[in-house]
């Protein structure tokens, strides 16, 4: 009759995100605005745009991932949910993992789906559309998990969003480097696709395995 705790948690997270006016839609709109702004800054030269397009999409995704991330644990801390989750039988590490997964489904996945469309606006060729989308699909979960570390460290701070960005952006550099390398494979003759893409996947898997422990430790210590 009662569902498993983690399934219940996942559906709660998705419901809350949907009722609060869709974090996903906001993220995609923000993504769109970033992509729109770049041509205004550097000019409408399609050759230039298609050359740096993958990089623009990646930076936009990185910034869009930060949106709403500061509330990931803060909201639970403020309404007392975090305390109650600590008394649950379910290990906090798994709770963290499921919350990050739900956050990624709501904010990261829509970006991945929207990426080919925005890629067209930046004059990417079909192959580049594929590589950008694949690299975002492989890389954005790592961004969400790294972001969760920052979110956990700033969980008690009312205005922790900026500090969170300062803490996690340096950690996100490797993901950005290999993500953009894989994404630009088709636009640059010198870069192959597979080596950076596989390293990106390895980074995501390693983050998936390690970050929940760091996040859970941070939550336990910071919510004391």
């Amino acid at each position: 009759m009662s569902p498993s705790p983690l399934a219940a948690l996942f559906s709660r997270e998705i419901r809350v995100a949907r009722r609060l006016g869709g974090g996903g839609t906001m993220g995609v709109i923000f993504f769109l605005i970033l992509v729109t702004i770049v041509p205004f800054a550097i000019g409408p030269d399609l050759n230039l745009l298609s050359r740096i397009g993958p990089a623009i999409l990646w930076i936009a995704a990185l910034l869009a991932t930060l949106l709403g991330l500061d509330r990931l644990f803060q909201a639970d801390h403020e309404d007392g949910s975090l305390d109650l989750m600590l008394t649950s039988d379910t290990p906090l590490e798994l709770v963290v993992l499921v919350k990050c997964l739900a956050h990624w489904v709501v904010t990261g996945l829509p970006l991945v789906i929207a990426a080919p469309l925005f890629g067209l606006m930046l004059a990417l060729d079909p192959q580049a559309l594929w590589t950008v989308t694949l690299s975002l699909l492989a890389g954005t979960p790592a961004l969400a998990l790294l972001g969760a570390i920052g979110a956990a460290l700033t969980v008690t701070l009312r205005r922790g969003g900026l500090l969170m960005a300062i803490l996690i952006l340096p950690l996100a550099i490797p993901v950005l480097i290999f993500g953009v390398s894989a994404a630009s494979a088709s636009t640059s003759a010198t870069t192959p696709f597979w080596p950076p893409f596989l390293i990106l996947c390895a980074l995501t898997l390693a983050t998936l395995a390690a970050a929940p422990f760091a996040v859970a430790a941070a939550l336990r210590h910071m919510s004391e």
Binding site: L9, R12, R15, D83, S88
Partner: peptide
């Protein structure tokens, strides 16, 4: 520990499972 956006039933069903 209740989420304001969820109904009382939804909140309680979640905590029951958790």
């Amino acid at each position: 520990g209740s989420k304001p956006a969820l109904t009382a039933r939804e909140n309680l069903a979640f905590w029951q499972a958790m």
